[in-house]
Design a protein around this nucleic acid. Sequence first.
DNA 1: AATCCTGGAGTTTTT
DNA 2: CTCCAGGATT
Length: 666
Amino acid sequence: MITRKIAYLIQACGYRAHHIAAVTFTNKAAREMKQRVGSLLQGSPSRGLTVCTFHHLGLKIIQREAQALGRKSGFSIFDDQDSKALLKDLLLDHSDAAANLVDICQQQISNWKNSCLSPAAVVGTAESPQEERIVELYRRYEQALTSYNAVDFDDLITLPVQLLESNEQVRERWQNKIRYLLVDEYQDTNTSQYRLVQLIVGNRGKLTVVGDDDQSIYSWRGANPENLVQLEADFMGLKVVKLEQNYRSTNRILRAANTLIDNNPHIYDKKLWSEKGLGDTIQVVQVSNEEAETERIANQIIEQKLQRGARFKDFAVLVRSNHQSRLLELKLQAKQVPYHLTGGTSFFARGEIKDIMGYLRVLVNPDDDSAFLRIVNVPRRKIGISTLETLGQYSTERNCSLFAAIGELGLQQRMPEANYTRLQKLGDWFKALQRRVDNGYAMQAVREMVDDIDYLGWLHQNSSSTAVAERRMENVHFLLTSVAKGLLPKGSSTASRETDDEEALADRSAIVEDEDIEDEEQSSLEEVIKKLLLRDLLDQQSEEQADDKAQIMTLHASKGLEFPHVFIMGFEEDTLPHRNSVEDDNIEEERRLAYVGITRAQQTLTLTIARQRKQFGEMLQCQPSRFLEELPAEDLHRNGFSDGDDGAANAVKAKQTLDSLKGLFD
DNA sequence: AATCCTGGAGTTTTT
DNA sequence: CTCCAGGATT
């Protein structure tokens, strides 16, 4: 929808590509859209077209308007873990340690931000001492971020909103730059994102959004599907077009999807249909355990590939949560099925990646205390807690960052000579590297940095085996390659880059007429690190290598994508719907998640269920998902259900047996 | 300051 | 089963 409309705007309405922006929610969806636009627009100029995530658009705005926001350009982006660590620190001062208090606070603060509520705005609203403390924490959290010259993910939306709201000149600049805005998956927008949309569109109404309230799966992130309805009130002359013909799936798959989602309430009613014929029955496979489940999936991929003459990349395995992919990976490796795993925080959660990212962050933003603390004694520099405490006190007094405090004159008197010297050495080393970066030798400086600290040696020292150390170093190299690629002048690596290259050229002329917003992306180290922090660059790189590979991803990550053959793994109670959602009484969103998964399939769909699986090291009995019974029986082919009778009934029986057993012990 | 040990806690989903 | 924080030991 969006890509066709972009083509129409350019080819029929005479819009220049650099006046059009399309935003999505995930990097993957943005890349997919870019690709489709590219092939649709062959011949027409697509240079300067903006297709990116909401967060990336926000980043662009902050980047360009850093001055107006009072930020230095090297600012760091704190990810979830960073901000959690910061909150933990701030809470620790209060010597308060409820187990999940940090999570609660993080959630609350994020909710406030997503609703565009500043600390000042919520200060009077606290209804309990606990809430009051969170408000106070929020204030100090914001303060800390500012002093670290850092922003968190939510800020990438809220800061542009604040700026565009308060600064007319800036607002006009961006309204002039983006003359037509398109938003995909509109049901997933939250309050701050909707505000951003309103501010960019202004009252000209040059806006197209596509949304499906049945695919709203981000409510935990503040998404508000009511925003779809709100549009009718906010934009006069809004035209609503209902799209019910589906061009992707067979009718069996659509029937299953329709029947399932009928169990939910709807904002808009719709019935999907397609001209693709009835299609294959949906396979429901029950096996004894999680091992057999992955075995079955792997075998099916191999078998069907032969039978149907399909490619590996035609197969996708969708999971509810990331950890489910681990076993599957092992099995696919064993069976020599090439696969590609999308997303997951796993890569950035690795210690070695956090270390090197820490170094990179300090390199581009010395004020990033969080990054500094991570790397100051890794590898060991004999800079320990006592030294850091003194440094911390001093930096607080001087109202500067830890790194800046190293260079302050009075520090020497506060600590033993040896400790002071070690700090100086570290500071000087970093400054030298920074100079190399500034002089245009960024990549050399980065490689030198990793060599200087002998990170390989450190890994060998701290890994259980040389094999593990080598694996970790490989990850580091992967990261460094990504940085190198990001730094490369545009146009040299891939086909998709070539368009960027011409884009940049075409834009130079555009800069003049569009005031000073350039679309050309700098390839500075700063820029590259930010892209890394937005999880974009790495995905991009690994996707480039993903030629003919089976795809593994979460249901969330699969939205907006399509595959000829889809497996949904773990179609069980407590997995889908997830146990936490059952507890929170949030079944509807889980149902939508299943709906999203089912509607990814073009030709075949297979649901797998294990009778038992190991969790936390102990065997658990599993029962089929309640959603199974909400699918049309005539479209399902059940496989491996004992005595061919209803698996759900079996599961109920099993549960009853289990309950009665429990009763014996009680 | 670094290393080893123990116990406890934890697995939704993304930028 | 795995990852962590915190404590005790070297």
